[in-house]
């Protein structure tokens, strides 16, 4: 007679299930009673003693560069503001808006569009500071060299892109999607019908360069700052990809803060943050590295009203619908 394969494991299974239930119950009650066990995480509301300022950014650069940038900035802000500063990395644009929406970020570096979206979802949030270059930011249109597309002189000239295949960067990018789409619309190009096929979304500025170089798309649009730095670094082969147009300027990247910073960190805290950011000085060797990583000469004060135009474009293009 063959030995039964299941005799004891049956008992093991039931014991395991019972143990699982107890374990889950025990852990549940532990966590709800002993708040102390969840370090720092629960400091969201009124936990004055261990106030942590959490900062984050849309991932428009490579992650290591972001990490380096925000590590330096965190140290600087911690020293200036006398609070613990924690950098929370996020992998996509909407992830950053979500983190701000749920309150996981106190201070976030957004693009024009994501900043407006974040403020629309968190009532009372404020645009507080931006780089000097963000007052007049631009996008570039690039094309494969062998498409034969000439340099385009003005916005109206974008109409020659009719019938080409085209890619944006991230869906939520201001310079890689929103403003290019808006300028295209001005030139009479509707993204759903004028191109050869539906427009692509490469996911990032770097990926846009890559897929245009690969020929997957004939034309693409991206952040001019990223383009310039890649060209400067020699990462772009001019025989493959060329710049065909640079857009008129618009307001872009900016810092947005949660509404109740003063209540949580003390009166005047938000002003102190702005002061700390704007007093970064390119001539100060300690500050220089930070500004250079941000690609900025300095930070300047900004306000919500500066983004009314972005919001209007967002509504026209259907990227702001609330």
């Amino acid at each position: 007679m063959k030995k039964n394969p299941w005799s004891a494991s049956w008992r093991t299974l039931i014991t395991a299930l019972v143990a699982l239930a107890f374990f889950a119950a025990a852990c549940g009650s532990d966590a709800s009673e002993g708040e102390a066990s969840s370090e720092g995480e629960a400091s969201n509301e009124g936990d004055e003693g261990a106030a942590v300022l959490r900062i984050g950014a849309i991932p428009d650069q490579e992650p290591e560069r972001l990490q380096r940038t925000y590590d330096l900035l965190s140290d600087y802000l911690a020293a200036e503001l006398d609070v613990t500063v924690e950098y929370v990395p996020v992998t996509d644009y909407q992830g950053a808006v979500t983190a701000f929406r749920v309150g996981d970020l106190d201070l976030a570096w957004f693009g024009g569009l994501t900043g407006v979206q974040a403020r629309l979802e968190v009532e009372g949030a404020n645009a507080i500071a931006q780089r000097d270059i963000d007052e007049a930011f631009t996008s570039v249109f690039i094309a494969r060299a062998d498409t034969g597309i000439d340099t385009i002189a003005d916005v109206a000239g974008l109409s020659v892109l009719e019938g080409r295949s085209f890619t944006f960067g991230s869906e939520s990018s201001t310079s890689g999607r929103l403003m290019p789409q808006s300028f295209l619309a001005e030139a009479g190009i509707e993204i759903d019908s004028s191109f050869d096929g539906a427009p692509g979304f490469s996911g990032s500025h770097d990926a846009t360069i890559e897929v245009v170089a690969a020929g997957s798309f004939e034309v693409g649009a991206l952040n001019s700052e990223v383009w310039d730095s890649r060209v400067e670094a020699g990462d772009v082969d001019p025989s493959e990809v060329i710049e065909i147009f640079r857009t008129p300027p618009y307001y872009d990247y900016h810092w947005v803060s949660q509404p109740e910073l003063d209540a949580r960190f003390g009166d005047g805290f938000q002003d102190n943050v702005v002061a700390a950011l704007t007093s970064l000085d390119a001539d100060d060797p300690d500050h220089e590295a930070i500004l250079e990583l941000f690609g900025a000469g300095s930070f300047i004060v900004t306000e919500n009203a500066n983004y009314a135009a972005i919001e209007a474009v967002g509504r026209e293009t259907g990227l702001i619908r609330s």
Binding site: Q117, S170, E171, F201, L319, I320, R321
Partner: peptide, 9 residues
């Protein structure tokens, strides 16, 4: 869905 998420809709 991705497009609607980008618009926070």
């Amino acid at each position: 869905i991705n497009e609607h998420l980008a618009a926070r809709d």
